[in-house]
């Protein structure tokens, strides 16, 4: 009958607090159910359903191809422009959707936060994760386009999971900052569309990063999405913009965003239930 009894101590935490990743792990089933809910609900009661996962990147690609590819004659590292921009839009869409959803996720889950205890980190993590399905669907279209243009991926495709992970980390990292802020300041909600739009143009999606000369190019890759986008093109389309240094800088920047965001989130977490 004598078992180890779990003891929970409840008291005020001060300043920066531990991330409690172990506890988060203990709640992995809840995380799974939250992701599962987001996936199930995402396209409920929409006429076009899952096609939305394709419509957005594809239409952006068409617009970019017309204006930047055709009219502005933007260079595209020797790749057909539609493929060049779409290969970038696939991870970009995953990033920006994850960011938008996760940043609003705490506010959207106010009821949960006020009524039930669980590690709050699970909420934005679930929001970003649920976008993986959309990513996979958009990625299949990318494969189709590669077949159409007769482009064979290089062996570097094995790096794709890592690139997806960096995208995930960046999206989550930024979301942790913004979602925690959004609890107190709904200004964040209005800032996000604006932020993603600016960020889109600060990332080599419509243009190649080879337009920049060297010291600037590495500096530029402090934007983690630069490394991701160039990495995608390099791994799939075989562009020779060998992304070594870019990728390292971008990965480090992404990690810094994530770690900083996670601590910032944990620090504000105790106020969520009272403020949201």
């Amino acid at each position: 009958m004598e078992q180890t009894v779990q003891v929970i101590r409840i008291e005020r935490s001060r300043g920066w607090v531990a991330l409690q990743l172990k506890e988060l792990w203990a709640y992995r089933e809840l995380l799974y159910f939250l992701v599962w809910r987001d996936v199930k609900v995402r396209y409920k009661q929409t006429a076009l359903g899952v096609s939305w996962a394709i419509i957005q990147p594809v239409f952006t690609m068409v617009v970019f191809s017309l204006f930047f590819g055709r009219l502005a004659k933007m260079p595209s590292d020797g790749i057909p422009y539609p493929l060049f921009s779409y290969a970038a839009l696939v991870p970009w869409t995953f990033f920006s959707h994850g960011l938008t959803l996760a940043s609003n996720s705490l506010v959207g889950s106010a009821n949960l936060i006020k009524k039930v205890y669980f590690p709050r980190l699970a909420i934005p993590i679930a929001s970003v994760t649920s976008g993986v399905i959309d990513f996979v669907i958009a990625f299949i279209v990318l494969l189709g386009m590669m077949i159409y243009y007769g482009i064979v991926p290089t062996l570097n495709v094995i790096w794709l999971p890592l690139l997806l992970l960096i995208t995930f980390i960046t999206s989550l990292g930024v979301s942790l900052w913004l979602s925690a802020l959004n609890v107190q300041f709904r200004d964040v909600r209005y800032m996000i569309p604006f932020l993603t739009q600016l960020w889109l143009f600060a990332t080599p999606i419509a243009y190649p990063s080879s337009l920049l000369s060297e010291p600037w190019r590495t500096l530029y890759s402090l934007n983690p999405m630069v490394g991701v986008v160039e990495g995608f093109r390099w791994a799939l389309l075989g562009t020779d913009t060998a992304p070594g240094p870019i990728l390292i800088v971008s990965s480090l920047a992404a990690l810094a965003l994530l770690v900083g965001g996670a601590f910032y989130f944990r620090r504000l977490e105790k106020t969520f239930a009272d403020v949201v």
Partner: peptide, 18 residues
């Protein structure tokens, strides 16, 4: 809410065994 760990106490502590 404090015992459920939804919000933190300002002072004092509680211990829950189980």
């Amino acid at each position: 809410k404090i015992l459920s760990r939804i919000t933190e106490p300002t002072t004092g502590f509680a211990e829950i065994y189980g």
